[in-house]
């Protein structure tokens, strides 16, 4: 059920999900523990007929603080260190290092379209057989791609949820990164940085294809995403 809504379509998707799960489970654990303690104590020492609500006197409060606040605080610091180590590991695996790529794909965002320049049959960008397609990106499953992301006018963001990739596109800069699709299928790309009135209707389609299907597309490419009405 959950997998259906959270398909992992890139080599690093599971690493990012792992990090998110780690943070979620740790914060979830502490959340329920702390809220549980709070509500239990409120209930346990409440005022009832014949009973006043119980408060701590000053001396008892200090001992209480050590036990209920300082100790958990130290344990949470240990959790923080675990999260930081996890985050830095994932960051350095995905953002600071890149595996050798098989192909480069150029992604240009503008109001309100995505232009994908594919390397074409020869696998080299900036040659005569490059394939330019509006709002659709075709990749071969299992190949490692390096991307060059640019923007023509204002800020945009290249969001490919199934890859767990979200990268801002900034006019005047070319931002590079990489991905390796692992799941065949048709997926969403969406602009994730408000960029004007067309922002909400600035999607693109990602096709991750088997080598055969990709070869067929290369031989007979489409140049824009056709909408059916």
């Amino acid at each position: 059920m959950l997998e259906h809504y959270m398909q992992q379509g890139s080599s690093y998707a599971s690493q990012i999900d792992g990090l998110v799960w780690m943070v979620l489970l740790m914060t979830g654990f502490w959340f329920f523990l702390v809220q549980g303690a709070l509500f239990y104590l409120l209930w346990r020492y409440r005022a009832r007929p014949g009973h006043k609500a119980v408060y701590l006197d000053d001396a008892a409060e200090h001992a209480f603080e050590v036990k209920w606040i300082e100790i958990p605080h130290r344990v949470i610091l240990i959790c923080d260190v675990a999260v930081i180590i996890g985050a830095i590991t994932v960051w350095s695996d995905i953002k600071l290092s890149a595996p050798k790529h098989d192909e480069v794909i150029r992604v240009v965002a503008q109001q309100w379209a995505w232009t994908f320049t594919h390397a074409g049959p020869d696998g080299e960008l900036d040659t005569a057989d490059d394939i330019v397609a509006i709002d659709e990106m075709h990749l071969q499953v299992g190949k490692t791609y390096s991307y060059e992301l640019g923007a023509k006018d204002v800020l945009h963001a290249f969001s490919v949820p199934v890859f767990r990739l979200k990268q801002d596109a900034i006019p005047g800069r070319v931002i590079t990164g990489w991905f390796k699709p692992t799941l065949v299928g048709e997926f969403d790309v969406q602009c994730a940085e408000i960029c004007g009135i067309g922002h909400g209707i600035m999607p693109a389609r990602l096709y991750v294809e088997t080598p055969e299907a990709h070869a067929a597309w290369l031989a007979n490419p489409t140049h824009y995403l056709a909408y059916k009405f």
């Binding site: 240009v108 503008q110 109001q111 309100w112 379209a113 232009t115 330019v132 509006i134 709002d135 023509k152 067309g198 209707i201 600035m202 140049h223 824009y224 995403l225 056709a226 909408y227 009405f229």
Partner: peptide, 26 residues
């Protein structure tokens, strides 16, 4: 809507009009 106009990489204005045409659903 279908992409016969405004779906060319160098058509800055057409690429703006193209999504707008899709606000009309029928």
């Amino acid at each position: 809507q279908t992409g016969w106009r405004g779906a060319h990489a160098d058509d800055v204005e057409g690429l703006k009009m193209r999504p707008m045409s899709r606000t009309l659903k029928s």
